[in-house]
Design a protein around this nucleic acid. Structure first.
Lengths: 221, 221
DNA sequence: CGACGAGTTGAACTCAATCAACTCTCGTGG
DNA sequence: CCACGAGAGTTGATTGAGTTCAACTCGTCG
């Protein structure tokens, strides 16, 4: 089965354009690895912008099953959807620095600045595209393909040809792409054995460009 | 970890509030079952509102694998994301009636009416929730559970306690929830055998309320 | 009526989940 | 400084749910 890579890229889309807003109204906070920034179901009164580190959006079902919807990095925004409550928990993967601002200030700003509305709509559309990509990725057949596609998507955002840090655990990746931790680990080993990736420790990867890494999806929504 | 239930409900959210816009600017068209309303990748110059029938948003990958992102019904809007191209193909499942309007007219309207912006943002947020639910549903373990959850989600939108029409094929459902057609069929049979659903032909279902269905996917809100 | 497509059912197989053992790294305290 | 322990990650063996291929049924439309 031939699959193109599913570009995961979201983000940095309107994050950049919201930077002035946060510079004006935001206060900076620091969150320790594993700590929860916002609980699923809680009232969402603030919005955040990731300055540094990696955040995972996680949905929990009744029985404790986890699903990681996305990993957010520098420039990404949390809390743009205008639901009253957080639809997912937002958790720090590593040491995270955030800018936070009250939601109502954004609403005020929006009323004044129509361009900002457009920006936010773009950002939401981007998020839709990102989730759609994840759905397609999840539908991809083999575990190795899924893991490879995930890595390509994640690394693409860094645009680096050398080693890239994977701050999240194997379990996080597993819960993201719908596999067990062991299978993810095996897929890493397989990709390494096939010469498709290089590992330094468990948390630094480098993708080896192979000839048939044609481009796959244009995203956007 | 106790977390709230995962609301599946999408749609009819802002569709209704866009009705006046379409009444003013829209023209009505009719699309035959199976016909394509918009091709993935094509320029998106129009937006549509479903008046009657069922539309599926489908993403195709290079090798022809299909993923059905969502089924849209009366009141739902196609083409709200402001990407230049359609991110997915929009296809008529059964006989569909649509209202269509040029995109630029909506843009013009938006500039004039700030409430409309808000409406659209709500609708996009809703779509994000819907995709997130699908991701969680896909992560759910067994095939039978997935099919049951799909049916509950689909029927919930009709709010009917009697038989509901399932316009889409087993293959459509399979491509939606990430199973093979045969497995979907088997799941239908199993649910029927367990007395959880009733079938009239292959395309009419009735859910049998069971005691422990209260908490499962009740959407509320 | 006949035929075609959609749906169902059956049987064999396969890939990932699961359970379990083991390694590696890193941080703590003797 | 080294021993120890804890947690993350890897690897192995087994099992099972879902895929696949194939036969068959059913309903619909010419």
């Amino acid at each position: 089965m031939r699959h193109g890579n599913t570009t995961l890229r979201l983000t940095e889309c309107c994050g950049g354009r919201l930077a002035p807003f946060f510079r004006q109204h935001g206060t900076q906070i620091k969150v320790a690895p594993g700590a929860v920034i916002a609980h699923q179901g809680e009232a969402a009164t603030k919005i955040y912008r990731v300055v540094r580190g990696c955040v995972r959006s996680t949905v929990y079902s009744q029985d404790g099953d986890r699903k990681v919807l996305q990993f957010l990095g520098a420039g990404d925004i949390l809390g743009l959807g205008n639901a009253a409550d957080w639809p997912a928990s937002q958790e720090a993967v590593d040491m995270v620095v955030l800018e936070s601002a009250p939601r109502h200030l954004l609403e005020a700003e929006l009323a004044a600045d129509p361009d900002l509305e457009r920006t936010i709509r773009d950002c939401l559309a981007q998020q839709i595209a990102s989730l759609a990509s994840l759905l397609v990725l999840t539908a991809q057949t083999t575990a190795v393909e899924r893991v490879k596609a995930f890595l390509q998507g994640f690394v693409a955002r860094r645009a680096s040809t050398s080693f890239v840090s994977l701050p999240m655990s194997r379990q996080d990746i597993a819960d993201h792409i719908g596999l067990s931790m062991e299978t993810v680990s095996r897929a890493f080993s397989a990709l390494k054995a096939q010469g498709q990736i290089e590992l330094r420790g468990a948390n630094f990867v480098r993708l080896i460009q192979s000839a048939d890494d044609e481009r796959g999806f244009a995203d956007a929504a």
